[in-house]
């Protein structure tokens, strides 16, 4: 079975009656980059949190390699699913290396701390993202783009199969957005599966092979970026008109003026 992760008829509400989403279905295979689009408050973050068991579905199932994730404990889930939240509040100025090492937590029991081997894995992740040189810097004193790389390094150190990225490009400048998308593409080529939420339909053209649009408690469309990101769908999802244009290397989604 190649389905790495699957959500079946997922329904969730915060208070028991007003559903955030209903009957969501999709599957993620090895090497997929699955991008969830939708307006503010559509429930993208909530859906991502349900996928790694941070919050529990009201009904439906999340399967990981065919196993119900509610039958797994936190560290079993964390060994398979890595997560980068949209917002991180920092309290203590840990060094970059200390932060990345935290990715080893699911592999260590409560009484142990990282060994030589764990340091090696953390250093390898730092090197793969070209940020090894800043390993001793406090992570609170580096730029937002660098911080994002640190969190990616941490999630790689976790050695999961699936990466859940909640709006990974939201707080980044134009250049860092594209660099992050490039990294996501590379990760997928290396066998990771990525599920991410995004506010930029155009980003789905750049890095994803599957897209879904969340609107009114469910997916209004799901498929390849070319199938899903259409002028009609964008108008339904965001209430604005866009132009889908074929560029030299790829397709692009360009917003038009609001009349």
């Amino acid at each position: 079975m190649s389905n790495l992760m699957e959500i079946l008829d997922g329904t969730f509400s915060y208070n028991g009656n007003d559903n955030v989403f209903e009957d969501i279905n999709f599957k993620v295979e090895k090497g997929d980059v699955f991008c969830i689009l939708g307006s503010n408050g559509a429930g993208k973050t909530t859906l991502l949190k349900c996928l790694n068991g941070l919050i529990k579905l009201d009904s439906g199932k999340v399967l990981l390699n065919g196993r119900d994730i509610y039958s797994l404990n936190h560290s079993q889930i964390a060994k398979k699913i890595g997560y980068i939240p949209q917002i991180h509040n920092s309290t203590f100025s840990f060094s970059v290396l200390d932060v990345v090492l935290m990715g080893r937590a699911p592999h260590l029991n409560i009484f142990s701390s990282p060994s030589e081997k764990d340091f090696k894995i953390a250093e390898k992740s730092l090197k793969s993202l070209n940020i090894y040189h800043m390993k001793d810097k406090p992570y609170t004193e580096i730029s937002g783009g660098e911080q994002q790389l640190v969190f990616i390094a941490r999630v790689l150190t976790q050695e999961p199969d699936v990466l859940l990225l909640d709006e990974p490009t939201s707080h980044l400048d134009f250049g860092n957005q594209i660099r992050t998308l490039h990294i996501i593409e590379k990760l997928a080529e290396n066998g990771f599966s990525v599920v991410m939420s995004s506010h930029f339909p155009d980003h789905a053209f750049i890095s994803s092979n599957k897209v879904a649009i969340m609107k009114g408690k469910s997916f209004i469309d799901i498929g390849t970026p070319e199938e899903v990101i259409t002028e009609e769908n964008m108008e339904i999802a965001y209430g604005i008109r866009v132009k889908i244009a074929d560029m030299v290397h790829r397709r692009a989604c360009v917003p038009l003026k609001i009349k």
Binding site: N52, L54, N73, H74, S75, Q76, I77, A78, K79, I81, G82, Y83, P85, H88, N89, S90, T91, F92, V99, M102, G103, A105, P106, H107, I110, Q158
Partner: peptide, 14 residues
Amino acid sequence: SMGEEEAQTLGVNI
């Protein structure tokens, strides 16, 4: 100390 939610996604039984 990174936050409850983050700790949980890192496999900690918070």
